[in-house]
Design a protein around this nucleic acid. Structure first.
Lengths: 214, 214
DNA sequence: GTCTATAGCTGGATAGAC
DNA sequence: GTCTATCCAGCTATAGAC
């Protein structure tokens, strides 16, 4: 009995490692050919198997994208949730912003899959998506340590950092034209949002413009 | 002679309008099917012709994307360069930010083609790209009227506004969760960057953190 | 310029032997 | 589980009659 259980475990482990090896090959492939360049033939060739064998591990091509998404989301959550060495909450916040930026610029393709949703029919499954929520929670925690708790300020934060990364990836790939602005951007953000340090001026501002919104 | 010239003009005009009609159909199609959903058959059907006839007007599929890009860039530049009614330079800046946001959320597909470069082998031709530079110039002009001239601050501006739009399109399509933050974001930006109103505090800040950049 | 017909290719996915 | 062989659908692009 024990033997049979062990055998099952072996097989399960083998299967898992083969599964993972295919996803490894998939990431390797798309990092060269782009997200849309993933084909089952090329993937199988790179993984050292044939195309039909891929179907022994994944039901469809989208299932492969989903597994890729799942691994990326896991890596993302792990990276964001790493404990920070810094006492100063502001420095810790800069650190988390730099981590995010680094994570995205490390692999623009991964950034595209995780955050830009550019694959036609693909929507990540809840299981694959779950780790991303963990990462958001870690960010909110750091913001809270800086006295930022209002929902609109959290949204301003994500927009600010996403914008830096987006410009960096789109217009200066491999460089640091935008990422080097992170420190100053965090300053700007905290000065504006922190209730204690900078008394809000928004309330006392006289008139609001009528922009063409929606 | 005159007659022949006129005839040539007619033909040229007819050709141009047929050309434009195809691009119209192309935009109509991708707005429903997504950028990657553009096929010559569907496009031809929607334009009331057959697939081979498309080749009488465009050399290849990428040439169609390029013409689509060109028109979008033209529309973009026109919109950004519209004169502002507002005297107050801050209000004018908010207006231009709202215009940009509106332009992008009006058609996420157009946003994707213009700013996200997600088509595999496609790179816009210089002629198609040119109008985008005109739009950037218009933005820089408005920034200058607010006393913003440093290159890094211009980059911070583009990141700020791009981030808002990117989050809006990606995470709340059709809503205004992020676009409604534009007014406050511009406040934050100007308070930080305007040399006259807010004396810089960056120079007097004691220590800088060591984020993991690049 | 517009059509019909089709070439030529590549893709995802399946059948069935081993 | 892995293979060979193949199906079938979709695509871009071309040939050639009208």
């Amino acid at each position: 009995m024990i033997n049979s259980v062990e055998t099952t475990d072996w097989r399960e482990a083998r299967r898992r490692s083969a599964h993972d090896a295919i996803i490894d090959a998939a990431w390797s492939l798309v990092s060269e050919e782009g997200l849309a360049g993933l084909t089952l033939r090329d993937l199988a060739y790179r993984a050292g198997i044939t195309a039909p064998t891929v179907y022994a591990y994944f039901d469809s091509k989208n299932a492969i994208y989903d597994a890729m998404f799942g691994r990326a989301a896991m890596d993302f959550a792990d990276r964001m949730a790493e404990p920070s060495d810094y006492e100063d909450p502001r420095v810790a916040l800069v650190t988390i912003a730099c981590r995010f930026s680094q994570f995205c610029t490390d692999s623009p393709t991964r950034y595209q899959l995780l955050f830009q949703r550019t694959i036609p029919g693909f929507v990540p499954s809840p299981e694959s998506y779950a780790p991303a929520l963990r990462a958001l929670a870690a960010t909110q925690e750091q913001l809270a340590l800086n006295g930022i708790t209002e929902a609109r300020h959290v949204d301003m934060w994500t927009a600010l950092i996403t914008g830096v990364v987006d410009q960096q990836v789109s217009n200066d790939p491999g460089g640091d034209r935008w990422t080097r602005l992170i420190d100053e951007s965090v300053d700007m953000f905290l000065t504006h949002c922190q209730p204690t340090h900078a008394p809000r001026k928004a309330a006392s501002r006289p008139t609001r413009p009528k922009g063409k919104k929606t």
